[in-house]
Amino acid sequence: MAKIKQGDEGPVQFKHRMEGLTTRVQGHQHAFGNLTDLFIPDDGRHRHNFRGITTTADGHRHSYSGQTGLNIGNGPNHFHRFSIQTNVADGHRHIITGRTTGIIRLSGMLGHKLIIEKVVRERVKK
């Protein structure tokens, strides 16, 4: 996340979107999608941290976190490549690989949405 300038609505931030499908393991794969996080300068270039949780498939999901490669290109159309393994869930892990989008400009407060996949109501015995 690069903070560029302060405006009336707070700092302007630049992030990248990451999305796609994991590798297929044990007959299934998961979708993933997130925005990059921390902006990390690196000898005149930069990279980003990222983290997320895959969609549920085959009764489970995986968390993941990592760091993108260095920026490829400059300016608003630059992007990053990434390749990591998810955390182990249900006895296995998947590989997440791809490239980010160009930069996305965010200004002001950024809220996080909670995704509820399933709600189960149970009666509690007293």
Rank of each mutant, 00 (worst) to 15 (best):
D8G: 06
G10R: 09
P11F: 05
P11N: 03
P11Q: 02
V12W: 06
Q13F: 04
Q13N: 01
F14S: 02
F14L: 08
F14Y: 13
F14C: 00
F14H: 06
H16M: 00
E19P: 00
E19L: 05
E19T: 00
L21S: 12
T22R: 04
T22I: 11
T22Y: 05
T23P: 00
R24Q: 12
V25S: 11
V25D: 10
Q26Y: 09
Q26W: 06
G27Y: 13
Q29D: 11
H30S: 00
H30F: 02
A31I: 04
A31T: 11
F32M: 07
N34D: 03
T36F: 00
T36D: 00
D37T: 13
L38T: 13
L38G: 08
I40W: 03
P41D: 07
D42L: 10
D42K: 12
D43P: 11
G44R: 02
R45L: 09
H46R: 08
H48D: 07
H48E: 04
N49I: 04
R51L: 13
R51G: 12
R51I: 06
I53L: 11
T55Y: 00
T56V: 14
T56D: 09
T56N: 08
A57F: 08
H60E: 03
R61N: 15
H62K: 14
H62F: 13
H62Q: 15
S63A: 14
Y64C: 12
G66L: 12
Q67R: 15
Q67C: 11
T68M: 04
G69Q: 15
G69E: 14
N71R: 05
N71W: 06
I72R: 14
I72Q: 12
I72A: 09
I72N: 07
G73I: 08
G73K: 13
N74G: 11
N74D: 15
G75M: 05
G75K: 09
P76F: 10
P76K: 11
N77A: 15
H78G: 04
F79D: 01
F79M: 05
F79A: 03
F79T: 03
H80Q: 01
R81W: 01
F82V: 02
F82C: 06
S83F: 03
I84L: 15
I84T: 10
I84F: 12
V88D: 15
A89Y: 05
D90T: 03
D90R: 13
H92I: 03
R93K: 14
R93T: 05
R93P: 10
H94S: 08
I95N: 14
I95E: 14
I96M: 00
T97G: 04
T97K: 09
T97Y: 04
R99K: 10
R99S: 08
G102A: 03
G102W: 01
I103K: 10
I103A: 06
R105S: 11
R105D: 10
R105Q: 14
R105T: 06
L106F: 09
L106G: 02
L106P: 00
S107R: 10
G108H: 08
M109R: 13
M109F: 11
L110Y: 02
L110W: 04
G111H: 01
H112E: 14
H112R: 13
L114D: 04
